[in-house]
Structures are given as structure tokens and as C-alpha cells.
Design a protein around this nucleic acid. Structure first.
Lengths: 187, 187
DNA sequence: TAAAGTTGAGAACATTCGTTCTCTATCCAA
DNA sequence: TTGGATAGAGAACGAATGTTCTCAACTTTA
């Protein structure tokens, strides 16, 4: 049953690409079949439903995000630099050519009201990021109120970059974060 | 043809409520008919298509937003306070009981990739807000780089509040904005 | 008053799409 | 080799939905 895992992963990767690029309801199961080469019968043996695929995609995206910001933070040493590395990571993402906003926010807007599990997945993802930032803020010795401010900058940069189509928002957010961090530390 | 206008407005208001609360594709034309009491035939005589209704809804939302922040700014006098009034306006919106994120971002995530006019409407809205903030920043005598930072805070507060379900983001964003404005002014 | 035109309600249509079903081919055991 | 079971491909099903069509009611005008 190792190839089952591999097939699931292939399906999740393809679904992630398609859902993210075009929206969830805009992608049909038949397109996922064409993209993966996995027959409908097989897809439905790997997952209960399209919704189950979506939830797996969101879980996968959560891991990508978590490992991405961890890797960026790993390249620097101080808590302050680790906090700022978030915005560098965002800049890399914004300029990778396929950026179309935060997948969780997109899924939340499209399906959050009708599929509670989607709203929950989005909330979990944002909670997790808030805690990550809060941990670094504490390590930096700054007041806890700084954390949501920095998280809000990251969120805002994502939507601004998505809609404007420009990666500048990452720089603006980074500059703002620097000012906020320094102001919070020298008090 | 005055009642035609009135019927269009009623349809737009109802569609706005439904689309915003549940997502666009989750609302059927038949539900809009039930909500408005306007027959399908009539709806299709008032608008070319569901998509045309959506575009009218987005235009309507743009006006609501523009007049909302203008009203909030009208209650105070200095450019600095006008800038901060944006976040007070947001707080009021977040706590009105029906808040589910920025309608433009939701529409962008759901349909931006498949309906270019939706992506365009979202971009226009965000552009317009950026220019509004930039104007106030200039009046305040602060460097232009402050404007995108403040706009990003507003965007981030909207998505954070939507997903977390809490209005705290408005306060965090306001506090951050105050720090950024003051830092930008005393240089 | 009567005929012609207009409007409206909602039934109907055609398409789309998630999901299931059928039939075929392959593989393994005896 | 053969019989049986498993898995896969893709045709088929049934529900949902945007849009149009039909027919009846009403209004207007001569």
C-alpha cells in the first residue's frame, strides 16, 4: 500500500495546483483526472469526495507554509531577523510566477460559509502562524501586542500582492515590521 | 423607468447580502428570485446575467466602502486622525454581526482567475483605497512610503478578523498604524 | 369595448458536474 | 490452463442550475 500513498500525494499536488490557480469549484473532477492520469474510479478510492481532496490539499498547504517560514528563519540567527525573514519568504513566494493570494483565504471566501471544515482549516492555519510569530516576539523580548501587528502585516501583504499583482507589498510590510519591532523593543 | 432603477437596486442589495454571506457560486438565481420576490424573467430583463449582477454588486460595494471611510474621516480633522479613522471604521464593520471578510478579496479568490472582470474590479477597489491613503499621508507631511504600509495594515486586519472571527485585529492595526505614522513624521 | 401589445410567473431546457456503475482485462491460485 | 476475483477506464446517472420559453393576465389605445 505504498503506491497508494504515492498516488494520494500525486493527486493532492495536482489538486493543489489546480484549485489554487483557478478556484475550487472551477476545477472539475474530470480535470483532476486528466491532470493526474488517475481514473475517476481510482480517485474515489483514494478519497471519499472532492471535499476530502480539498481538505487534504489545505493540510498539505499548511505544511508547505510552516516548513517554508521555518526554512527562512533557519537562515538567520536572531529572533528579530527570524521575524523579518517571514517577509522575505513572502517576497519569494510573490515572485514565483504563480502567486494568487493565500490559498486559505481564497478557500475561506469561496467555501467557508458552506463548508465548516474549510473555515476551520483556515482558522487553524492562521492560529498556528499567530503562535509562531508570538513565540519569536517573546524570544525577542518585545511585548506580546507586537505579534498580532506583525501577523496582520503578513496577511495584508499577501492580499495586497495578490490583487495588485506586485511583490512590492512584501518590502513595504518588511519595512513596517522593522519599525514596529524596533519601537516595541526600545520601550 | 424609475421603478426599473428601484428594482435593480433591490436586486443588487439582496444579491450583495447573499453573495457576501455565502459565496457567489453558492447562491442560485432561484434563491435571488425568492429573496427579492422578483421573477427570473424580470431579473434577466434587469441584468444580462448572473455575472452582470455580480459586477453591479461589486460596484455597489465599492461605493459603500468609499462613503464609509469618507464618513469616518469626516468626524475628525487632522490627516493623522483621518488615517486612523480607517481602523475605527473597520472595527465597526467587524462587529456588525455579518462580517465575513472583504467582499472583493472573496470574489477575487473565488472567481478572479476565471472572470477577468472580477479581478479587475478588485484591483480598482484596492487601487482606489491606496490612493485615498496616499492622499492623506501626503497631507500629513509623511513620506510616501508610509501609505502602502498603512493600506497593508488595513487589508491584513480585514482578513485576520474574517478568519479569526474577532474584531481585535482592528485595534492591533490601529495601534501599529499610530506607531508607523509617528515614526514617519518625526524624521 | 375590443384588439393589440406588454409584462410577469414559473415551467422547461440544456448543460455541467460529482459520483457511481458496468464491463473488460489482468493477475493469481489450483 | 482455467476459473475467480480484483482493479481500472470511462460511460452513464441524477441532481443542480443558469438561462429561456410559453402562456396567461393585464394594460392601453382606438
Amino acid at each position: 500500500m505504498e503506491e497508494r500513498r504515492a498516488a494520494q500525494k500525486a493527486a493532492i499536488d495536482a489538486a493543489d495546483r489546480l484549485f489554487y490557480a483557478r478556484g475550487i469549484q472551477a476545477v472539475t473532477m474530470d480535470e483532476l483526472r486528466a491532470e493526474t492520469g488517475i481514473s475517476l474510479k481510482k480517485l474515489y478510492s483514494l478519497f471519499d469526495s472532492k471535499q476530502a481532496i480539498l481538505l487534504a490539499v489545505l493540510a498539505h498547504r499548511h505544511e508547505l507554509w510552516t516548513s517554508g517560514i521555518a526554512r527562512a528563519a533557519g537562515a538567520v540567527s536572531t529572533p528579530r531577523d527570524k521575524l523579518l525573514s517571514v517577509y522575505d519568504f513572502l517576497h519569494g513566494w510573490f515572485t514565483d510566477g504563480n502567486y494568487r493570494g493565500c490559498g486559505f483565504i481564497n478557500a475561506f471566501g469561496e467555501l467557508g460559509a458552506t463548508v465548516p471544515a474549510v473555515a476551520l482549516a483556515a482558522r487553524k492555519q492562521k492560529d498556528s502562524f499567530q503562535r509562531y510569530v508570538a513565540g519569536l516576539v517573546e524570544q525577542a523580548g518585545a511585548p506580546a501586542s507586537l505579534a498580532p501587528q506583525l501577523a496582520i502585516l503578513a496577511e495584508g501583504a499577501q492580499t495586497t500582492a495578490a490583487i495588485s499583482g506586485s511583490a512590492d507589498a512584501a518590502h513595504s510590510a518588511r519595512d513596517a515590521a522593522e519599525i514596529l519591532i524596533d519601537a516595541a523593543l526600545q520601550r
